[in-house]
Amino acid sequence: MGVSMATAKEWVERWELQQQRYAVDREERFTVIADVVEHVTADRTRPLLLDLGCGPGSLAARLAARVPDADIVAVDMDPLLLELGRTHHAGAARYVDAVVGEDHWTDALELDRPLDAAVSTTALHYLPEPTLLDTYRCLGDLLRPGGALVNGDHFAQQAPGCSELTAHVGRRRAERAGSHGQEDWQSWWRGAARDPELADLFTEREQRLAGFGGGSAGDHLTAARHAELLREAGFSHVASVWQFGDSQVLVAVKD
């Protein structure tokens, strides 16, 4: 069910372009996340990192470049995106097929030591609030003291008027950067479905997703609510370290 290097390269490069439509200042957000990871792992030998909802390895590849001595475990439930990552970014991470937030999902990670950092971009908003709290607790158990959980995402604002404003600022930024000229999410997936090399993986993906409700259950959660859940999960140090529009990087450090 593997794909060729050429096919993986094509679809990962197209993925990178279409994602720029949605993640405001995506590259800067990746850089900030890497800055945080670099800081918390500065005195560590072979730091262990976990990439949650890794997709085709976009963040894992950037972290591998910034922290080349790190061991990175990248987890996702999407078989097609995982295979693209395994092929195109093979050296960046060890890719794990698991559903973040399900019972015993961390067993599949097969970690041999505590994590130095857990990272995520535009993924945890798929989790409903109770599952998100459980996930934060699990990650707190996996992290070493001084380790960090770093979440880059689009967060709802406290007031609807503010949400509309921050979303507008983000859209205008994307327009200035020319990102809206790229293909969108739907056209990327339509194209992938037509590629013969991806057909079996696409079918498996559709079968898996049929068992889930779909949507983004946690889209309504503000950064402040995420911070409350993180503190409830045992993280006493939580801060937003970067923001543009409604895109933020939230960091929680374990005592």
Score class of each variant (00 low, 15 high):
M5P: 01
A6I: 04
E10G: 00
V12N: 11
E13P: 02
E13G: 03
W15L: 05
Q18D: 00
Q19G: 02
Y22F: 13
A23G: 01
I33S: 04
A34K: 08
E38T: 14
T41C: 15
A42M: 06
A42H: 12
D43K: 09
R44T: 14
P47R: 02
P47S: 07
L49D: 05
L50S: 09
D51Y: 10
G53I: 08
P56D: 11
P56C: 15
L59D: 09
A60D: 09
A60F: 07
A65G: 07
P68L: 09
D69C: 05
D69L: 08
D69G: 08
A74W: 07
A74E: 08
A74Y: 07
D76I: 07
P79L: 08
P79F: 09
L82R: 07
R86P: 05
R86W: 06
T87H: 07
H88C: 04
H89I: 01
G91N: 12
G91Y: 05
Y95N: 04
A98L: 03
V99L: 04
V100E: 02
V100F: 01
G101H: 10
E102P: 00
D103W: 04
H104M: 03
W105T: 02
A108Q: 12
E110R: 15
P114C: 08
P114N: 11
D116R: 04
D116G: 05
A118G: 09
T121M: 14
A123H: 05
A123V: 03
H125C: 05
Y126V: 03
P128I: 02
T131D: 03
T131G: 00
R137V: 14
C138H: 14
L143F: 07
P145R: 06
G146E: 03
G146I: 01
G147C: 14
G147Y: 04
G147V: 07
A148Y: 06
L149M: 12
L149C: 04
N151M: 06
D153L: 06
D153K: 13
H154P: 00
H154C: 13
F155P: 12
F155C: 10
A156Y: 05
A156S: 15
Q157E: 15
P160N: 12
P160F: 11
P160E: 13
G161Q: 08
E164W: 12
A167R: 15
H168Q: 08
V169Q: 06
V169F: 06
A174W: 00
A174E: 07
R176W: 05
A177W: 00
S179M: 02
S179G: 00
G181L: 13
E183D: 15
W185G: 00
W185A: 05
S187V: 10
W189K: 05
R190E: 13
G191L: 09
R194L: 13
R194C: 08
E197H: 08
A199E: 12
D200H: 10
F202W: 13
T203H: 11
T203D: 13
T203S: 08
E204I: 01
E206D: 14
E206T: 14
Q207W: 04
A210L: 10
G211W: 12
G214W: 12
A217M: 11
G218V: 08
T222F: 10
A223E: 13
H226P: 02
A227S: 15
L229C: 09
L230D: 03
R231A: 10
A233Q: 04
F235N: 02
H237T: 11
V238K: 06
V238W: 06
A239I: 03
W242Y: 13
Q243R: 15
Q243T: 11
D246L: 01
S247R: 00
Q248M: 11
V249W: 03
V253L: 11
V253C: 06
K254G: 00
